[in-house]
Computed example of a mutant assay.
Amino acid sequence: MSDTAMEPGQGGAAPLPVAHDMSEVRDWIALLKPRVMSLVVFSGLVGLLVAPGALLMNPVLAATAILCIAVAAGAAGAINMWYDRDIDAVMRRTAKRPIPDGRIAPAAALAFGLWLSVGSVVLMWMATNVAAAAVLAGSIGFYVFVYTMWLKRRTPQNIVIGGAAGAFPPVIGWAAVTGDITLVPILMFAIIFFWTPPHFWALSLWAHDDYARAGVPMLPVTAGARETRRQVMIYTVLLVPVGLAPWAVGFSSLAYAAVAMVLGAMFLRHALAVLRDAQDEAGRSLTKDAPAKACFRFSLTYLFVLFAALAADRLAFGA
């Protein structure tokens, strides 16, 4: 089929640029960082599902809370792209983003992000409670001001501290149901917090040249590949017991603990492979099958499966 539509009565003389219109829509969606949003939405949903009283919550309000989490994450992503447009332009994996590629004006992207930020927080407040809205606003502010504008370009610890921004969604989901924050959402926060460094540093080993070109002080750039691989191992070791914490405090059953232990052992195996791999030293680039790439991919599987197991366990044994 043609990529264009025809004006009625024009005999095909005046095609409308439907394909162009759709590409513009895709550009606005790309500003929201949909791949990152999927993980945010999922962890927020798990926080909501495991909260006491979740099964009694109005499904419309529950869906609205998840929508607000998604929109807020997208809003923060859009503002991040607006602020980082200069370094995005010199990094291969980001140069084709809508702003550095000239498809969306920076001011328009900023306005888009600001409106979505305000709208998501206000709607969360109206649909659920002030606690959920406050944590949602805090998560946006932390990602934009603390991570994007302050830490990212100043310290190799940007991912460690800034990782807190991505750890808020399960807390928000829990607060949307209960109106408060207790030990369990803090433990879910901690899981994502300790998961973020090995996840992102494995990626940064792969994207070392991009970060060096852009002058972003990621750990491989400032401390070298060997130290980064060591830190991936350290944080993975710390993550494994944190992943077991919901069981340790009696919130989940032994079934969840078994899943967490298996996943933790698999993550440790990947981290150990990264630690032992020296192909990224002496300026050499990683191959496509490098352990760092495999570790990054598995880290995504780890978090999705771990949180899915927590939700399934709670719904089956503790609701």
Rank of each mutant, 00 (worst) to 15 (best):
L275S: 10
S23L: 14
C295W: 02
D21K: 15
P170Y: 08
G113Y: 04
V40T: 14
R284C: 10
A51T: 03
V274D: 07
Y235T: 01
M37Q: 14
L315Y: 03
V184L: 14
G318P: 07
W150T: 00
R35A: 14
L286R: 14
I191D: 07
V249L: 06
L238P: 00
F200S: 06
D280R: 09
W115A: 15
G163A: 06
L45I: 00
V259E: 00
I159L: 07
D277L: 04
M37F: 12
A167E: 06
H270P: 06
E281H: 00
R269L: 15
A290E: 08
G215K: 12
L56S: 15
R226S: 13
F267P: 00
V259T: 08
Y256Q: 02
T155A: 13
D3Q: 15
G173C: 07
A137K: 02
A260T: 05
C68N: 04
S43K: 11
A175Y: 01
V262M: 11
R284G: 13
A54V: 12
A265L: 08
S117D: 08
D209S: 12
L136H: 03
R213L: 10
P198Q: 07
V216M: 02
D86V: 14
L272K: 14
L263D: 10
V46G: 08
G102K: 01
L310P: 06
S38C: 13
L151S: 09
V262A: 13
M188V: 10
Y235M: 04
L203P: 04
A190R: 02
R226I: 13
D289A: 06
A108H: 09
S120K: 05
F307D: 02
A95K: 08
E7H: 07
A70N: 10
L110E: 10
A294C: 03
T148R: 03
V216S: 05
V60A: 15
D289S: 10
L315N: 09
I186L: 14
S285M: 12
P169V: 12
F112Q: 13
Y143P: 02
P185I: 07
W125R: 11
K96I: 15
P59Y: 00
A258Y: 00
V232L: 03
P52A: 12
A19I: 03
P17V: 00
V36C: 11
T178C: 00
G166T: 07
R226G: 05
Y83Q: 11
N80H: 01
A282K: 06
V130W: 11
A109N: 09
A19C: 02
A95S: 11
V274P: 10
I66N: 11
M81T: 12
A127Y: 08
V171Y: 06
P59M: 08
M81V: 07
F168E: 14
V171I: 13
A190G: 04
R92P: 01
I186G: 09
N58Y: 03
A13E: 12
V36M: 14
W195P: 06
S299P: 03
A319G: 15
S23I: 12
P156D: 03
G264L: 14
A89N: 09
V18Y: 11
K33C: 11
W206Y: 10
G53S: 05
K33E: 05
M91G: 07
F251G: 13
V121L: 03
I192R: 10
L67T: 05
M124E: 00
P170Q: 06
F296C: 07
E227D: 13
